[in-house]
Design a binder for these strands. Structure first.
Length: 249
DNA sequence: AACGACATCAACCGCCAAGGG
DNA sequence: CCCCTTGGCGGTTGATGTCGT
């Protein structure tokens, strides 16, 4: 027996969202929040859409803090470094790129960065006898590359500056983005890693939703991976565990 | 101008894990 | 425990745009 679908696909609208639907969803979320239930949200909001579709539309497109436009070189480098270390954990990678969604990062990787990544990698292989296997971490344990391992056959150029084909300072790059070990957590998605000071001092902070507006409490909770123990242990072997530790995971 | 190839990205699919009853 | 619902995630698809011939 197959798994029951989350909604009746034949009765809900699919495909691209209209501006009217976007407005309806935004207005509803602004006034009521998710109510902790995306599945029932479209009915309450008067949308003939699947709840999952509403959630995706909000997270990937309608959220006010979405950053649109091209990725910077620093973002490129960070994505490549993280991909080389933890694999295709797009939500984790996106959490280190404020304003970027996992879908954005995934699309960007698949359409552009992947080629750049391997072009730089091949260049390194040809010019500098880049080792066929890269045991950079002192632990000596095999790397866990997540679901992407088959793509690499165990070989990862994760210390490479893809734009320059030069050695890449992983810790430096990561520190530029992770700011601190605090993660922003809210009810509207997993994206957005910002330091407390960034949230509290920026103009963005003043525009953050209050619990009354969005029907939420503790919209922004600060978690420290070292201290709270609240964050998931993803079960990575070193070095991924060590790297994720930099982000509070 | 017309056409095909390629690139982009929004949206969907299906699986998995968490949590509540 | 077990089952069910839901949220979250990564992989994939398909519509649309852009470029080259």
């Amino acid at each position: 027996m197959g798994r029951a679908p989350c909604c009746d696909k034949s009765k809900v609208k699919r495909g691209p969202w209209s501006p009217e639907e976007d407005t309806t969803l935004k207005n509803y979320l602004h006034n009521h929040g998710t109510g902790g239930n995306w599945i029932s949200l479209p009915t309450k909001a008067g949308l003939n859409r699947c709840g999952k579709s509403c959630r995706l539309r909000w997270l990937n497109y309608l959220r006010p803090d979405i950053k649109r436009g091209g990725f910077t070189e620093e973002e490129d480098n960070l994505i490549c470094t993280l991909y080389g270390t933890i694999g295709s954990r797009w939500s984790v990678i996106a959490s280190q790129l404020p304003g970027r969604t996992d879908n954005d990062v995934k699309n960007y990787w698949n359409t552009k960065l992947k080629k750049k990544f391997f072009a730089a990698y091949n260049m390194n292989l040809a010019s500098r006898e880049f080792p066929a296997s890269v045991p950079k971490f002192e632990s000596g344990t095999p790397q866990d590359h997540g679901t992407s391992s088959s793509c690499f056959d165990g070989t990862l150029p994760y210390l490479m500056d893809v734009s320059l084909g030069q050695s890449f300072d992983q810790q430096k790059q990561i520190s530029q983005f992770s700011h601190s070990n605090f993660l922003e957590v809210n009810d509207f998605g997993t994206c957005g890693s910002k330091s407390f000071t960034n949230i509290s001092s920026s103009q963005e902070a003043s525009s953050l939703p209050t619990s009354s507006i969005l029907g939420l409490e503790n919209n922004y909770t600060l978690w420290s991976g070292d201290e709270s123990g609240a964050l998931t242990d993803y079960g990575f072997e070193p070095p991924a565990d060590a790297l994720l530790g930099n982000f509070g995971y």
